[in-house]
């Protein structure tokens, strides 16, 4: 599939300058969701820079980022990989019929103690 999403689109949505990266790998070294991801934070930087956007958009990795900002905080070059992951995810869910989760999924996920905050967050992250 071709999404017609380009490097420039992702850079514009994210506001990230991938050229600042020195590929030290600290983002992937610190990422708490590393094992769950197919493509890791430093690969998002590399793959966006080199136009491999489709692969990222098709990967489950974009739903595994916890948005914990560890990569963003600890990056010695202030590249902000989390923003790239967010931008790729946005590029996917902004497309027609590409919501990753909707209100209809929620009843099945409810638990007694689950705070509203979790549901609101998920809707913001996974649905447009």
């Amino acid at each position: 599939m071709s999404n017609n999403i380009t490097t420039e689109d992702i850079l514009r949505i994210s506001g990230v300058d991938t050229r600042k990266c020195m590929f030290c790998g600290k983002c992937s070294g610190t990422c708490p969701a590393f094992d769950e991801m197919e493509y890791h934070p430093h690969q998002f930087v590399y793959m966006v820079q080199w136009g491999m956007i489709d692969k990222l958009m098709e990967s489950k990795s974009i739903y595994k980022c916890l948005t914990c900002f560890a990569c963003l905080e600890r990056c010695p070059r202030n590249v902000q990989p989390a923003k790239l992951i967010e931008a790729v995810r946005q590029a996917v869910i902004r497309q027609q019929g590409m919501n990753h989760m909707t209100e209809n999924d929620i009843p099945g996920l409810l638990e007694d103690k689950l705070p509203q905050q979790a549901i609101v967050s998920a809707m913001r992250k996974y649905k447009k």
Binding site: F23, G25, S28, F34, Q43
Partner: peptide, 11 residues
């Protein structure tokens, strides 16, 4: 020590 190994793409 949790770090990345870029050449093997491992944590």
């Amino acid at each position: 020590v949790q770090g990345s190994s870029l050449l093997s793409n491992d944590q």
